[in-house]
Nucleic acid binder design. Structure first.
Lengths: 228, 228
DNA sequence: ATACCACTTACAGCTTTTGTAAGGTAACCA
DNA sequence: TGGTTACCTTACAAAAGCTGTAAGTGGTAT
């Protein structure tokens, strides 16, 4: 069953939307903590988010832009602001669809269903900025190039992408990749880090893995921080 | 540069659309041979198609449905029929977006751009009915399961999918997979066919590769012939 | 200066993939 | 019914790719 997150400050409309989704067979969750929408959404990991852009205190557009750079679920903007310029802004920031209130439930459901169908094909894709990683095959895509990583390299890359923008310590990497922090030889991480960097340079992703002496590794640079 | 196909019988509107796309930096092609739209589109292999559903002689909805089962580029329906029911029909048949005439060029361009961006991630995906094949990694997806094929198996599967619904002769398979028809041992094809069938059964795709005695192999069954 | 951390290359064992060989099963035809 | 042809399957060994170990180099902080 698909999970849908509803970010909307009007409590009546929010419950109405949730009802609509429930009736259609989706698991719908309302989000009301507008201070930490981003964190809540990242924690909930929905298959789709319906977003109002008129949130108290926060700009929905900024939120949309930030989300799109790090999450891989589709975002549907549902708003009372109905000018062409609003629509262009939303789509330009990466929103996947734009509907204006009031919106017929059937239209909303049809649009949601279409987005879910499309994203079904790419839900194994992890995204960070302009870099994509298929977590099934460890195919890494950047611009028009791609490289298929070996399993160990892929696991390291995945961990770095998932924890971004945090610095990932060596022991964290050991548990994520080898399942234990009690590593015999620490060198093996550096060897694989070296291999990964060589693979990355094949698709022009040079120097995006940076070492922080004594602390660990972190992804850095335009390539992973820009929005798409 | 992205290629866009415009399927529209009104010659003035068609040229206007093509102009709009040209100005925005796209390569736009008008399609007027409505008897063979499907073949023309498959030959042109655009990155996106803009489709009017009121074509002379043909139902644009049928066209959309058929196309969606075999091509992997997005389809945007642009039509004068503006009822909710029209939109629901179009989206239900697999259309990726639905806009009504008259449509502001900027809105059309923004929608087109968003679709191109989304499909950029899945353009390496070959689709046949409900089956998807990533041609970079040979990851094969069916419903909620997937399997990563070895290179040889993947090449065979790719050829069968691309030539569907034709029967693919052994010599065709040899040139597609090994690059030569002058094969020494014909058995190697059968061995790999056997391996491929075993891989397919892992994701519940049993019996979709059928042999036609003396002629070759063909994909058959609900799984590859139904629309998505 | 020295200890420590990080990086790189080479190599050998292991796993996966690939083609060969050989034997079996199913369809077609006299 | 028996034989021929086409197709299918399993087992095995060579080749390719992946992974961890070893050993040595280079850089940084105190």
């Amino acid at each position: 069953m698909f999970k849908i997150a509803v970010v909307e400050d009007d409590v009546y409309l929010r419950d109405e939307l949730i009802q609509t989704f429930h009736k259609a067979g989706y698991a719908a969750f309302g989000i009301s903590e507008f201070e930490h929408v981003e964190e809540e959404l990242c924690g909930l990991k929905p298959d789709l988010a319906v977003l109002d852009v008129n949130l108290p205190g926060k700009s929905g557009y900024d939120l949309c832009k930030n989300l799109k750079a790090k999450v891989s679920f589709p975002i549907l903007i549902l708003t009372a602001r109905d000018t062409l310029s609003d629509e262009l802004t939303a789509l330009g920031l990466g929103a996947d669809d734009f509907l204006t209130k009031p919106c017929h439930p059937d239209r909303l459901l049809a649009r949601v269903e279409r987005l879910l169908k499309t994203y079904d094909k790419i839900k194994s894709m992890l995204q960070l900025g302009k870099v994509f990683l298929d977590t099934d095959t460890y195919k890494l895509v950047f611009r028009d190039k791609h490289v298929v990583l070996a399993e160990t390299e892929g696991k390291i890359m995945r961990t770095l992408m998932e924890r971004h923008p945090a610095i990932v310590s060596k022991s964290e990497l050991f548990s994520a990749v080898w399942g234990t922090e009690e590593f015999v030889d620490e060198n093996i991480l550096q060897v694989n880090m070296s291999r990964l960097r060589k693979s990355l340079s094949q698709i022009n992703l040079c120097d995006i893995i940076q070492n922080v002496r004594g602390q660990g590794y972190v992804l850095k640079g335009q390539e992973v921080e820009d929005i798409v």
